[in-house]
């Protein structure tokens, strides 16, 4: 079991040094601590069968609502690229969609930006927005679910 005090110390150190992620091997366990805009997230990743060699990168952790995590009957609108998520065309505008919005396949639901290229993303599915899985300006990965849509 990972020492909780050790994690506290690590989080304090991460805050002090502006670190986004720390991976720690402790006996049979890998601990990944990530800091986002909100509270730090601690994930304990049980080690695979073979104790060595140690993995260089921690096992990928499913994003919220990721593969397998999508509730039955809903379809995820996924990010086609790595970048930053924007819910509205500019900071002063209302979001493209909100929970309860009806969308058609060609409805623009958000903008993903990378390197000052702002890309409108469409729903590709007809239905109702059931859940928004990312916050405005949050960094998103390729294939990460952004919205859950209940198909019409």
């Amino acid at each position: 079991m990972v020492d909780i005090e050790k994690i506290r110390e690590l989080v304090a150190m991460m805050v002090e040094h502006e670190l986004a992620e720390v991976k720690l091997r402790d006996g049979g366990e890998w601990v990944v601590i990530r800091r986002g805009a909100a509270a730090p997230v601690v994930e304990v990743v049980p080690q695979a069968v073979a104790p060595s060699p140690a993995p260089i990168v921690a096992a990928p952790v499913a994003a919220p609502g990721g593969a397998g995590g999508i509730p039955e009957g809903l379809i995820a609108v996924k990010s086609p690229m790595v970048g930053s998520f924007y819910a509205s065309p500019d900071p002063d505008s209302t979001p493209y969609v909100s929970v309860g919005s009806m969308v058609a396949p060609d409805t623009v639901v958000c903008v993903i930006e990378a390197m000052k290229v702002f890309n409108e993303i469409k729903a590709d599915v007809a239905g109702t927005i059931e859940q928004i899985l990312v916050r405005n300006e949050e960094a998103v990965e390729y294939g990460q679910p952004l919205f859950l849509v209940r198909p019409a």
Binding site: D106, V108, M115, K116, V117, F118, N119, E120, I121, K122
Partner: peptide
């Protein structure tokens, strides 16, 4: 980086790329 135009420490121009399906 990534695509602003500067002369010394002053900005001369900027670029914004947008895309739409």
């Amino acid at each position: 980086w990534p695509n602003d135009l500067y002369v010394g420490s002053r900005k001369l121009g900027g670029i914004l790329v947008e895309s739409r399906p």
